[in-house]
Design a protein around this nucleic acid. Sequence first.
DNA 1: TTGTATGCGTTATCAC
DNA 2: GTGATAACGCATACAA
Lengths: 342, 342
Amino acid sequence: MNHKISAYDVAKLANVSQSTVSRVLNDHRNVKQETRDKVHKAIKEIGFTPSDIARSLAINKTNTIGLIVEDISNSFYAETAHIILKEAQKYNYEVIIAESEADEESFSQAILTLNSKRVDGIIVASIRMDNKKLKEHHKNGVPIICYNRRSYSAPNSHYVEVDNQQGAIEGVNYLANLKHSKIAYVSGPIVYSTFYERLEGFEKARKINGLKYSQSLILKENLDMDQVYRFTLDLLNSENSPTAFFASTDQIALVIMDAIAKCGRNIPDDISVMGFDDITISSNNYINLTTISQRKEEMATAAIKELVKIIKEDQKSYYHRAIVLKPLLIERSTTDISKSLT
Amino acid sequence: MNHKISAYDVAKLANVSQSTVSRVLNDHRNVKQETRDKVHKAIKEIGFTPSDIARSLAINKTNTIGLIVEDISNSFYAETAHIILKEAQKYNYEVIIAESEADEESFSQAILTLNSKRVDGIIVASIRMDNKKLKEHHKNGVPIICYNRRSYSAPNSHYVEVDNQQGAIEGVNYLANLKHSKIAYVSGPIVYSTFYERLEGFEKARKINGLKYSQSLILKENLDMDQVYRFTLDLLNSENSPTAFFASTDQIALVIMDAIAKCGRNIPDDISVMGFDDITISSNNYINLTTISQRKEEMATAAIKELVKIIKEDQKSYYHRAIVLKPLLIERSTTDISKSLT
DNA sequence: TTGTATGCGTTATCAC
DNA sequence: GTGATAACGCATACAA
């Protein structure tokens, strides 16, 4: 086992003290080049890997941040994690990914786990808008920054998000501009700030554009994909059939597209579909979904940048960060641009 | 900051010694219920979270395993990570995900990082078949188990994989049975054992079934998606146009499907497509790709189960584990079953 | 049943 | 420049 080897063993081999080994390891000045070489040679020879565990204990920080996601197999979280992993590296931080349901108890459990590991900061990518625990964690724990979603119960917590309401508004405006007057909307669970705000945006824009309103055009109960599928099928076969579907996530849009295809309708000739998020698969030409970009890359980059700043600041003095990015409509081929009014 | 609070503070508050606090924390017998209660009360009151860092240092293990993947945003790795995260929890292990290119240097770097963190074991989901470093890590480092891919240069290392050659054979047999006699094959990079063996399987089955052979039907240069796209397009427009495409990954199959659609051909009426891996999106009805399942779930479950066993065993005595799962053909709608001979 | 003392592998503060 | 030595926060052998 490698792990029996400590800096002390290196010291013996190099005929120096263990503190000198430590100095060499940390690139201190005031070490003669000669002994520096001796130590490096001994390290190689004996096969020594310094222990981050012991180091962390000694310096009281881990250079590690925690990332809480709901389900890493979900492509949104997976892509987020990838970006954060890469970005963290730039700041010389490692990241530990913790999965957690979005409810308060799971959330607190995840925070607890990460606290046990003594992470220096936490990015929360999965929180319900009514989460009340965040507030106290924010007050007396390690720095936490919310990503994509936030809790309205912790107004002073840090967060990075895209302007979801604005995104939905732009989406509806875009569809209205394509002469769609009857638009169906499928919401994700409105326990999340993202979906709450997207729905609000949809409603606002619907009114502004004077679009038809019907309760039956809107699905906002839950995110069960079978239900979305049936909803689409039923709507398509009803007399109330819309000419466009606005899905609050790309994942939902895929299900809607599936149902539309099964109905024998053509996209976008018969029915237009618009998503929200711009996950990777959406840009695949076989899908090619028109969508509102969530700008994961910018969100993630900003989140970690701010978090690192907060960590490095005097813990007491940091002020409240609220970063809101502008949404970005990406026009692809599930909406028929030939009908454009402009 | 939470982190100033140690078991010692709890001890003072509860009027016991720090070792008693430790005993309570670890559920030792031989602690009076009364003092147990006292301690728990104090823990709550003072808001104490034990440090895994210090604990790990003391007991010389971290209850953590490392997972090395190429790119967590790749759905194959993301889904793998999800399963492993869940499974690890059952064995009371945490997991640290490290991204690494598959080349030897990146690989060794990732191993080094995980070793610094003193993980108890490592699952490698991304290794080239010619990797020579694995062998030495296997001999004198923490337990390592390869997942999905393996290195032929380390024949005694542990691994879990699906029978890739057999999978490709079954795929070709299936297509041949649908009267396809001209089948194109797109390989992934054959620096990986998976693709090496799938290609071998394809070749074997091609001969057995007496299928047409032409160098132009096979693409095995690299995994650049643009190239796959052009390859498909060119082939479709050539006089050598095949009636079926066998893609060595579902991701590749998606690109092929895209190109086919762009050519105005219909799937499966004009052209059949078969993938390999069965990633989540493949079962989406809008895609509905016929494919060979990699059985991630079983692979991942087996990998972590074996790894935990190896960790718990006497480190010296563990024998070589090679777990090979049977592939599973999943018939969906990108292959035309109406032409079936049986 | 509980307390004392020691060690885990580092870093950091002193002296020399 | 370098070497003792005391933390860091926990687990544990040994005493009591």
